[in-house]
Design a protein around this nucleic acid. Structure first.
Lengths: 229, 229
DNA sequence: ACCTTTCGTTGTACGGCGTACAGAGTTTGT
DNA sequence: ACAAACTCTGTACGCCGTACAACGAAAGGT
């Protein structure tokens, strides 16, 4: 199955053959940020990765922001959309499974998560996810404006959670083990003095766990309960 | 009341008098991003704003990230923490009022919102907000780990919402009127074809309103219901 | 077979960025 | 009066995004 972006799919095109493809550019950008973190993402670095002059990338990507959009779209495509389909499984289970899968996919490429708050999620993968999410909420009994509204609340929760989680890492892959990140947070939180902030000091252990899958899952359940009861 | 960061508060300090202060640097940075958007934030631009060479800023701020942290801390301080205090008013009303106030403060300086997903929220203003939020959830009847967990869900929702809302603006102040932003979104969403995405096409009007205070408020209520029932 | 059009890639260049380093000048404690 | 401490400037380096022109390969028309 040939990609639409390859040259031969639009026959009769003049000019020299392309040495790259949008897929190769995206893959190189992903490799780069996985290895060196999101701050390393630049047109020049990706071009160097591909053994090409920086300007060559402008054939495949309009500008630097295009690189970011491509990474976001790629990441959205990593979570299995089939998880949202039913109705053999409960709507709640479907949404839960997809949310956890999307979170896992983003944590697996931590530099990509912050880009979701910057680059618009309007590619086909995002559209498809939204469509099936609307279906799952409809299966949950929501009607009228409620499914679309619930959809946004869920997106905000999932994307916001991952972005905030990843914000305190260096963005390189693989992300540190959850236990280690919790321990780091606990050590930092242990600094807060109990006198001015007693409740905070008493909650240090739980707050250290804010970045865990357990916290994410707990919150996800609470959000879903709030949304459909 | 003199700030600790001013020179006279630490008497006996040698060297020439400071021409600036951390507050003036933060204010200049805020003015800059309000006028020209978050992409304009740079050490050199802020220095130019203050009529000083770029290096002079390093006396007040460790690096470029320090500028971002200062803006986040300033924004957190803009929402009235008294709104979270009680217990004369219901815990639910207090959290609602504070969440709406924080959202309004961030929307009033749209370039700052994305920084909250990047720069850590660990300044005194953030600590204070967390402390009082824990109290409000405790007043709501939550016990054990629940208040701290609920706290994070709420932070994720509020900060995530604003960041995603602001992501599709240019970051300059003032942000466009809500109606205009909705209209822009509706026009863009009208492009999606009903054939592959029927539910999405049917929900265009509601999805256009994802960035409204009405949607934020609706979701906030659902989240709070999920969190404490 | 030629010639022309088309287009991917390179070479070069500009202005902006963060910030390291050394030095100048001002203020204070001794 | 002197020395120490400190703020700011001058300068420099290596990055960045990307505009522009020129080159060369491939394909179409004749």
């Amino acid at each position: 199955m040939k990609s639409v972006t390859e040259q031969m799919s639009t026959p009769g095109k003049r000019g020299p053959k392309r040495t790259l493809s949008e897929e190769r550019v995206t893959a190189a950008a992903l490799d780069l940020v996985d290895r060196e973190g999101g701050a390393a993402l630049s047109v020049r670095r990706v071009a160097a990765e591909l053994g090409v002059r920086p300007n060559a990338l402008y054939t495949y990507v309009p500008d630097r922001a295009g690189l970011e959009r491509a990474l976001v779209e790629w990441a959205m495509g990593q979570a299995d959309l089939g998880l949202l389909d039913g109705p053999a499984r409960s709507w709640r289970g479907r949404i839960r499974d997809y949310a956890l899968a999307l979170r896992a996919a983003l944590l697996d490429h931590p530099a990509v998560a912050p880009l979701m708050m910057t680059a618009p999620m309007d590619g086909p993968a995002a559209l498809e996810a939204g469509e099936r999410l609307l279906g799952a909420f409809a299966d949950g009994g929501l009607t009228g404006k409620a499914p679309a509204r619930a959809c946004w609340v869920l997106i905000v929760y999932v994307v916001g959670s991952v972005a905030l989680d990843v914000a305190e890492t260096d963005g390189t892959r693989p992300i540190a083990a959850e236990d280690d990140r919790v321990a780091t947070r606990r050590a930092r939180l242990a600094q807060v003095s109990a006198a001015p902030w007693p409740r905070t000091a008493a909650s240090v252990d739980t707050m250290a766990e804010w970045i865990t899958e357990r916290q994410f899952s707990w919150g996800l359940d609470r959000v879903l309960v709030g949304l459909v009861g």
